[in-house]
Design a protein around this nucleic acid. Structure first.
Lengths: 341, 341
DNA sequence: GGATCTGATGAAAGTGCTTTCAGTGGATAA
DNA sequence: TTATCCACTGAAAGCACTTTCATCAGATCC
């Protein structure tokens, strides 16, 4: 089962290896006729270029890296799926790199990875997208990268984003439409722009509906189940408790559900609850959790394609496609229960 | 920032590139003194061999593949973490390959991947571990592989396994110790050996405690939330319903919880519930779900190491370490409620 | 019509490592 | 002592591509 080489193709097509190489790499300066001829032979022999040889000769690895630091495995898997898809499409390999954004060794580790894997470019996800030290390092080392960001960061060609504030506003609006006026908000880690954008969306929705912003309804969480429980307890023991709670992710929402159960507050009759991320938990809770779903896989594939097109020389620029997040309505939200009013 | 080559090291150490290569690859026939000397230079220059060149010259990619087809993303991420760890340790790259075991194109896709990525070996996970056609293909194509299997499949050096039956038996025993005698069992997909092993463990536990096996307490599920709901409904409407239910995974257990809620059956007071896998859901449900945790990451790293040692020429065989699954007790299981008796 | 340009093609020289095979010198055997 | 062996080392030839640069015919120009 000896592998077919470029030389084999060249011989069969009656051209030089260089011309085959031109066709393989989509280079110009090949007459249409010889291109067709060579493509035919490539097909017949089902020739695949040897990646190692390509890398060695061209001094590029045909590898891109995906950096993430996210406790939600569904999030990670969706990202991977997206990037993997484009990688396959363009003949690139994917190097996955789970990391710890807060680790002092982050950059050192990455540097090692960059040396050993020689990745041609990187896709960064939050929170690394906001790690300035990291970004500086990448720029200084000349590593191309693309960000998947929760900001509408249209600043550059370098990022793909969905605006968390827009969809959050929509979710809050849906609660308001159900008649809720006092809506608790559990934040994520405040330093993350995603958290800030969600809070912003909340504020915008209130403003739009002339509901005054009550600081005491905003409780700090840290994206974990436990923090959701605590935050909910605080909110639900409020002297004038909210009739709805928006949690900045599903895990905290699950925490709210637990707290509500403990306090014998029924969802959605006495309390409406909305999460964020549409993790499997959301569907498996009782009642199902109303939540927000980002088109993660497509975001990731978009980011990957952006990166790869930037890396390849002879490619058309990517047409931009608008990606929309979705509000998933389930049983955890509903009309305000009037008996309490 | 020109990269350091083997030649540079050779020059600085006053030896030939070949000797440096010997040191890098841990080959024998190098005197201790020159080995030390070369290692010193490698350190000073922080030389890393160029993977592409290595691959090209030695005709091996230094890549291993991880094949999985599992809806649980935590499962997938744990596996990846395990294999990734070993890969880094041994200077290998990891190619992740989510696939569909039932797809007729599975083998074709894999063949393409094998051609384009030239992976040196594969780690297979269930259900691919039981896909004979796939295994045959791998053997015939001469691709080394290692299995992560739920069978105690000590048949070969080629597999790493934990015996699902043992830990299931333990879980059922714990229910029996709580006084349960009628224990419902929701199976997974029956063709999977993991499912069979779990059922076997259930049967063994009953037998050991002289509890007769009641076929009507066994309901078929398919690992999904929905199937859990249905199975639970069937069990709970049984004329002589079980006081405890074992679901073959957490998702189905979540389904049971939902069904119980609908039927106003309280967990754990009126019904004990045990899941399998210890996914995040288990911790986020109310009450928390008693479940079983496999040491997945370590299984995966073990499998990876087994594979890589097999691939590398100059390595010691791996000492076997016994990996144990764990029963995680949470609020969903408890003593039989005597008021119903 | 000769000079110049241009698009298409190929020859040759890398790319950084491993392989194969040929030494080399000292130790062991006869 | 001489033949044999063995541990250690290196020279040279790849590996399958890409790069650079040269070539060459036909088109374009004045």
């Amino acid at each position: 089962m000896k592998a077919v080489t470029m030389q084999d193709v060249a011989d069969r097509a009656g051209v030089s290896p260089k011309t085959v190489s031109r066709v393989v790499n989509n280079e110009p300066r090949v007459s249409e006729s010889t291109r067709k001829k060579i493509e035919k032979v490539i097909d017949e022999l089902s020739f695949k270029p040897n990646k190692s040889a390509q890398s060695l000769a061209a001094d590029r690895s045909l590898l891109i890296g995906l950096l993430y630091d996210n406790p939600s495995s569904t999030y990670v898997v969706d990202l991977q799926a997206g990037v993997l898809g484009v990688c396959n499409k363009f003949g690139y390999g994917l190097v996955i790199h789970p990391c710890e954004n807060d680790s002092p060794e982050l950059i050192q580790r990455l540097r090692e990875l960059l040396v050993s894997s020689r990745m041609d470019g990187l896709v960064l996800t939050p929170p690394m997208t906001e790690n300035q030290e990291l970004l500086d390092f990448l720029v200084s080392s000349g590593t191309p990268y693309v960000l998947i960001s929760p900001l509408d960061n249209s600043q550059s060609e370098l990022s793909v984003s969905v605006d968390d504030s827009v969809i959050t506003q929509q979710a809050i609006q849906s609660l308001i439409d159900f008649g809720h006026r006092r809506i608790g908000f559990i934040t994520g880690l405040r330093k993350r722009s995603g958290s800030e954008m969600r809070l912003l969306g909340y504020q915008q929705a209130l403003e739009k509906n002339n509901i005054s912003y009550d600081e005491s309804l905003i409780v700090q969480g840290n994206f974990t189940f436990g923090s959701g429980v605590l935050a909910a307890q605080e909110l639900l023991r409020h002297e004038n408790p909210p009739t709805a709670i928006f949690a900045s992710n599903d895990y905290m929402a699950a925490g709210v559900m637990k707290a509500a159960l403990q306090l014998r507050i029924s969802i959605p009759h006495e309390l409406s609850l909305c999460g964020f991320d549409d993790t499997p938990v959301a569907g498996y809770m009782s009642p199902g959790l109303t939540t927000i779903r980002h088109p993660l896989e497509r975001l990731a594939s978009h980011a990957g394609e952006l990166l790869i097109r930037q890396l390849k020389k002879h490619t058309q620029p990517l047409e931009v496609e608008t990606l929309k997040s979705e509000l998933i309505l389930r049983g955890s939200t509903g009309p305000v229960n009037n008996k309490t009013n």
